[in-house]
Design a protein around this nucleic acid. Sequence first.
DNA 1: CCAGACGTTGTT
DNA 2: GTCTGG
DNA 3: CCAGACGTTGTT
DNA 4: GTCTGG
Length: 223
Amino acid sequence: MDLTATRDRQGEVRANFNLGPMQKAPIIASDGSKIRAVTATWSLIPTWWKQDLEEKKFSTFNAKSETITTTRSFNGPIKSLRCLVPAQAYYEWKREGKVKQGAFAIGMNDQSMFAMAGIWTYWKGTYKQKDWEGYSFSILTCKPNPLTADVHHRMPVILHKDTYQDWLHAPVEQALNLASPYPSQNMDVWEVDGRVGKLSENDEGLLAPKAEEKPDDETGLLL
DNA sequence: CCAGACGTTGTT
DNA sequence: GTCTGG
DNA sequence: CCAGACGTTGTT
DNA sequence: GTCTGG
C-alpha cells in the first residue's frame, strides 16, 4: 500500500485469509482532516447505539453506495468518517437459485493489494454485558462489473490509487462519485476451496485456485 | 406529534 | 442521531 | 453471505 | 425450517 509507518507496529498486523463480520482488520481512517491506521471491527456500530451490542440485529458490514446518504446507520459517518480497507482478494459464493456453485476469490489480475471504500465509527458500550470500545467499519458496495457479475450481483467499491485522497478527504458528493464498479480488465476471478465458508479455516491455501478433480486413471491409485 | 426502527445479501 | 410509520 | 444451533430443569 | 452468530 506504499504506507510509511509512524510507529513500530511490528507484530500487530499480519495476513488474514478469512475475515468475517465482527472480526478485526486494519483500516486507514480519515476524520476529515487527519488519517491514521487503526484496527477496526468489521460491522459498523452506529454512534447512537445504546444497547448491548448483542441486541443489534441488523446488518451493517456492507453499505449500499446508492442509498448511503439516506440510511440512518450510515448518513452520519459518510460525511467525513471514510476509510480504506486494504485487501488482496475478497470471496463470494456463486449460486443458481438455491444451488450452490462454489466459492470464488476475486482480486487484481497481478495479485496486488487494493483498497475498498469504507466508513467507520468509534463506539463505546458493552458486548455480552462486558465493556467494549473501539473502531468499526462498513464496506461500500456497488453494481458489479461484467467479470464479477458472473459470480455475484454486487461488488465492493474498489478505489483506484489516484482516488484514495479524494475518498478520504473530498466532500461527500465528490467522494461518492468514486463509488463505481472497478474495471474488469484489471481483475481476476478464480474458484477456491469451499473451506472459506468456515471462518475457523484460515491459511494461505484458501487463496489458491481450487484443485481440479482428477479422473480415476490419473490418481495413481491401483484399483 | 410520539414510538420505534435503524441493514445487506439474496430469495420469493 | 435521524428517519419512518402510525 | 454461510455455519451452526435449535431446550429445560436444576445443578455447579 | 428458521434464527443467531460470526
